[in-house]
Design a binder for these strands. Structure first.
Lengths: 238, 238
DNA sequence: CGAATGCTTGAAGCTTATCAAAGCTGGTGG
DNA sequence: CCACCAGCTTTGATAAGCTTCAAGCATTCG
């Protein structure tokens, strides 16, 4: 996590120490294991060491909407610190290693490091921004555009944490049902859409590996702007 | 704004003073006036004194997605403080009075009041939570459910700032095209859907006034949970 | 009063969902 | 090491929900 945050702003040694304290315990989780259940009172947060997680919401009739994906280096779920009760389920999409820490573990950080506080605030805003992008995608994009969009976003996100393979391809640990629930589609139509995207020569697939062949064309197709740039100029110095 | 934030946690006098400083200037804006344009470097933020605003994203071919609504007491756009360039347009849905202040106006607040910082952080998380709810609505709800959802959310939001009329009705300053762009629908279908909702006896309409007749039934219909509860127990004391 | 804007209603069409069945793949136990 | 099985993906046929297009009506404003 120090590595991830350090990309956005220089950190003092004391800041690094505080962050490292959050990662001192490790716990392993199996694929599909549920980490947090909707309605629970949240006492613990987690730093993701490895693996993918997702938060999601279930409706009475079985409909499901995936809300967020958590990658290595993320905090699950930083937002929950401010809420009394958790509003969504969170589970492992792959086997994962998490570093649990009590909610109060962030307290010293808020009281002693304005700079680190600003940084966490910025991370929350950034996440916010990706949610807005997805609202736009689900609300106004065709299925074809939505899938392109998701693939680009994942590639970008993985690139940032060195999760891409040498040739730029990446393993897609989501099932097509997961992708459908993330984008407001059905698994059947995701399958048909991905086949079309592949037939059009925009991507190549091999098992669950995906390689984006024409990132430029795909980005134009779905108005993909990449990540917002964090402005650290206003951060308190210490 | 002091009133709005004070609802979530007790504020020290010094905190109130800092907040009040943000609201010392006032400027009037006309309906449809654009406050912030996509791509601009953000130097100024605003406290909404009166009126409604919305941020939105335009696609090349004219499609539009409304992203957020801003009500009196909100900061437009708190998120932008952390971003170098603005990613969306923001405009007035009604005539409005805003209090502009420079981005740097928040700096003393971050450096001198951990408690206020935590509160702003919480507000951001809370907004985050409503975005997740809307992702769920757009991704998995039918048009009928989406419109019910939006009306409930607005009523709740207005209730919190005493914006409801005596009989519980409220003026809806959005056009049906706005509602459509907020929910990922078309203006035509919003019209048909609202007529159905009214025919079903869930709401009553008179011009642009709306009254929710059966809030309970509507809430069950669309799994409406109300607002998340903010946990202020972890806030630094001063 | 005329023009502009927004709302309503109907008909036709398209994207996506639903249902169903068959093919593929990776993991497990014999 | 192979066969089996469960879960995932693919493909096709049909259906539903929403969009698009178009015209008429209502309201507001200069």
């Amino acid at each position: 996590m120090v590595a991830k945050l350090g990309r956005f702003a220089a950190l003092a040694e004391s800041d690094k120490t505080m962050l490292a304290a959050l990662e001192k315990d490790e716990r392993e989780y199996r694929k599909d294991e549920v980490i947090v259940q909707c309605g629970e009172t949240v006492k613990e947060l987690f730093v993701v060491k490895s693996g993918w997680l997702a938060s999601y919401s279930l409706l009475d009739d079985g409909r499901r909407q995936l809300l967020r994906l958590f990658y290595p280096g993320d905090i699950v779920d930083l937002s929950e610190i401010a809420l009394l009760r958790c509003r969504h389920d969170i589970k492992c999409l792959t086997a994962a290693v998490l570093c649990p820490f009590p909610k109060s573990g962030l307290e010293p950080l808020f009281t002693h490091s304005p700079r680190l506080t600003a940084l966490l605030f910025s991370m929350t805003v950034r996440e916010n921004s990706t949610l807005l992008d997805r609202i736009r995608a689900i609300g106004r994009f065709s299925a074809y555009e939505r899938v392109c969009y998701l693939l680009l976003e994942m590639a970008l996100r993985l690139h940032a944490i060195d999760g891409l393979q040498a040739d730029g391809a990446f393993r897609l640990p989501l099932t097509q049902s997961d992708i459908a629930d993330l984008l407001g589609l059905t698994n059947v139509y995701v399958s048909k859409t991905m086949s079309r995207i592949e037939a059009d020569g925009l991507i190549a697939r091999d098992g669950n590996r995906v390689k984006i062949l024409k990132p430029q064309a795909m980005a134009e197709l779905c108005n993909f702007n990449g990540d917002p740039t964090i402005d650290s100029s206003w951060f308190p110095v210490h």
